[in-house]
Design a protein around this nucleic acid. Structure first.
Length: 594
RNA sequence: GCCGCCGUAGCUCAGUGGUAGAGCACACCCUUGGUAAGGGUGGGGUCGGAAGUUCAAUUCUUCUCGGCGGCACCA
């Protein structure tokens, strides 16, 4: 079967009829899958309205991996309700449904949906000249522009309701909250199961669980959204910091540390007080108002302004692992992904307009290098351009945008342009990495700023001894260290790269007799900079191995009579593979090089 | 902040209108062991917090704090 079921335009917008320059959508294609998912949304709506006649369907689009439908209804849906709905959907599918398109006048449409204020609102928002389409199926009619398959009998639909949650009507927080039913759907049961398994896997890899099991950090209600780092977690954190620092030093960054608590005088000047006062932690002391810094940039400009800077000093790169605090709404907090106290691997580079290319180029390469080192190979790039409301001249914007584009294209990177998505103060590149479960995380950013240096009075002397305002480039590589640690943990299921892992090697004495030898060995290895631990417990070897593997220690070293006699040591990987070393010195090298 | 669900031992979780239980972990004892769990004994919980209903609340109700899934937000 390869028939045409719909068309799409070049913005991937779907149409139920042929359009100029349209691309046909063949059955069973990726696009057809989306259409099938939208079909399923209608099936879901029929099931819900059958079981709950008072439920008012609102909108129900397809989304990545599935679809949802929002309903306004009296009773809140329980898990049992969801099972019932799922069963009802299966029943409907076994009967099969045809989707029949019908065009009606606005008056007729308003009459048909008169009991559903949401559909009425949608109809009233339609262009008066627009054709109003309905899709009829047995027991259900929806206002819908389509397209749909002509019948559910054209494919197998394997679906599962995954969750129910609240969602504002039209996504506006002052509107009524509706109940959104999420579901996933695929053609084959195999694909469905694969997807569900992936969801399970993601749950298993949850960084909160890993953090607890591995003894990395503590999250407690004593300070919601702030992390208590335990010694192992801090080791991880410091190793990440150390590596990024070493890379930055190669690029002549000047690492600084600015106060966490700063007078609101600075935030008023920078404009943050006006815009984000409600989201800042403040303190009244000595009749003055202070705020915990929500970002580092104004502080770096304070440092910049404290000295006489000339064109010879540019580009000037201030970096800081800056601890910032933002009052995030309670519902936004999410493990280490979204916290109130976080550390940015921040830097601000002051430069001239001519230096934008070089600075952004070195930064883009830095970001890529760092991601690779942490095991992320797939990176996506977006460039956000001038929004409607912005400051700075058109010329400056064009220059900056072109330089950003040139950086990426010169490095043979494909990128998307997000028109008008830039900040009001300048364009940016965003770096998004993809993890081993296919999830995407936006981490790095390079942002050009035409505003803040001017606003805070930053100046440098040019070759004519005239004062000029520098351009400032904000950049972050991993973004928030806290969040990045969560990403790394979930990406690797706790098997973080060897050079940052808190404990690299567990030394396992075969019996009590060898503990002393192991302790000496441990001391030697520690002095060589290897992070080791001795398991001197009264357990059998198999148990010790199991234990060190479950604590995510990547290597173990079994030490007994055999090893001590022969001086031949086997480094055991977590998978049980052994690498033989003729002397301890040899694997010092192994750890230092990995 | 909003909607829904949840909060019981260090961890994962069971359970009940009559003040609690398992597995793992931990301690001690036996075992001195060779590559993913040897055996025994034992300690440990104001059942998130406050108030209410009740003869009696961990269990029911309300409030509150926190967590999770979304929505909204994210300089």
């Amino acid at each position: 079967m390869n028939e045409i079921i719909a068309y799409k335009d070049h913005n991937d917008e779907y149409y139920d009829h042929e359009i100029i320059d349209g691309v046909p959508i063949k059955s069973k294609s990726e696009d057809a899958l989306n259409i099938m998912r939208h079909d399923m949304a209608h099936i879901l709506a029929e099931a819900v309205t059958t079981l709950f006649p008072n439920a008012k369907p609102t909108i129900g689009p397809f989304i990545k991996n599935g679809f949802y439908y929002d309903f306004d209804m009296e009773n809140t849906l329980s898990d049992e309700d969801l099972s019932k709905i799922e069963a009802q959907m299966k029943k409907i599918l076994s009967e099969g449904r045809d989707f029949k398109k019908r065009s009606v006048s606005k008056e007729d449409a308003l009459e048909i949906f008169k009991d559903n204020q949401y559909k009425v609102e949608l109809i009233n928002n339609l262009d008066n000249s627009a054709e109003i389409n309905l899709y009829d199926q047995k027991n259900f009619t929806d206002l819908c522009k389509g397209p749909h398959h002509s019948s559910t009998t054209e494919y197998d639909a394997n679906f599962k309701i995954t969750s129910v949650s609240g969602a504002y009507w039209r996504g506006i927080s002052t509107n009524k909250m509706l109940q959104r039913i999420y579901a996933t759907a695929f053609y084959s049961e195999r694909e469905l199961n694969k997807y569900l398994k992936n969801l399970e896997e993601a749950k298993e890899r949850n960084h909160r669980r890993l953090g607890t099991d591995m003894g990395l950090f503590l999250l407690t209600d004593l300070s919601a959204g702030n992390v208590f780092w335990k010694e192992k977690g801090l080791t991880l954190y410091q190793n990440i910091e150390k590596y990024i620092r070493s890379e930055q030093q190669k690029l002549n960054y000047l690492e600084v540390k600015t106060p966490e608590l700063v007078s609101n005088e600075l935030w008023i000047k920078s404009g943050h007080w006006d815009n984000f006062k409600e989201n800042m932690f403040t303190s009244e002391t000595d009749n003055k108002t202070f705020a915990l810094k929500p970002m580092n940039c104004p502080c770096h400009i304070v440092l910049f302004n404290s000295q006489l800077i000339t064109y010879k000093d540019l580009p000037l790169r201030y970096s800081e692992f800056g601890k910032c605090h933002r009052y995030e709404p309670s519902g936004a907090l999410n493990g280490l992904f979204r916290v109130r106290g976080f550390t940015q691997d921040d830097a601000h580079i002051f430069c001239t307009g001519d230096q934008i290319y070089d600075v952004c180029n070195e930064t883009a390469l830095l970001i890529e290098r760092v991601y690779k080192r942490f095991g992320f190979e797939k990176i996506k790039y977006n460039i956000s351009t001038k929004p409607e409301k912005s400051i700075g001249t058109k010329e400056n914007w064009d220059n900056a945008e072109n330089q950003l584009k040139k950086v990426l294209s010169d490095n043979n990177k494909e990128f998307n342009i997000l028109e008008g998505e830039g900040a009001f103060y300048g364009p940016k590149i965003e770096f998004t990495l993809e993890d081993s479960l296919g999830r995407e995380w936006q981490c790095g950013t390079i942002q050009i700023d035409f505003n803040l240096p001017e606003r805070l009075g930053a100046k440098y002397k040019d070759t004519n001894d005239k004062n000029q305002t520098p351009i400032m480039i904000h950049r972050a590589v991993v973004g928030s260290l806290e969040r990045f640690i969560a990403i790394i943990l979930e990406n690797t299921n706790g098997w973080v790269p060897l050079f940052i892992t808190p404990i690299q090697l567990a030394i396992l004495p075969v019996s009590e007799k060898f503990i002393e030898y192991c302790n000496e060995l441990n001391q030697q290895l520690k002095e060589a900079g290897i992070r080791t631990v001795v398991d001197g417990s009264d357990n059998k070897l198999g148990y010790k191995i199991r234990n060190s593997v479950s604590k995510k220690i990547p290597y173990s070293l079994v030490v007994g009579e055999k090893e001590i006699e022969s001086k031949n040591f086997n480094l055991r990987s977590r998978k049980g593979e052994n690498t033989s070393f003729a002397a301890i010195e040899e694997f010092k090298e192994f750890f230092q090089n990995n």
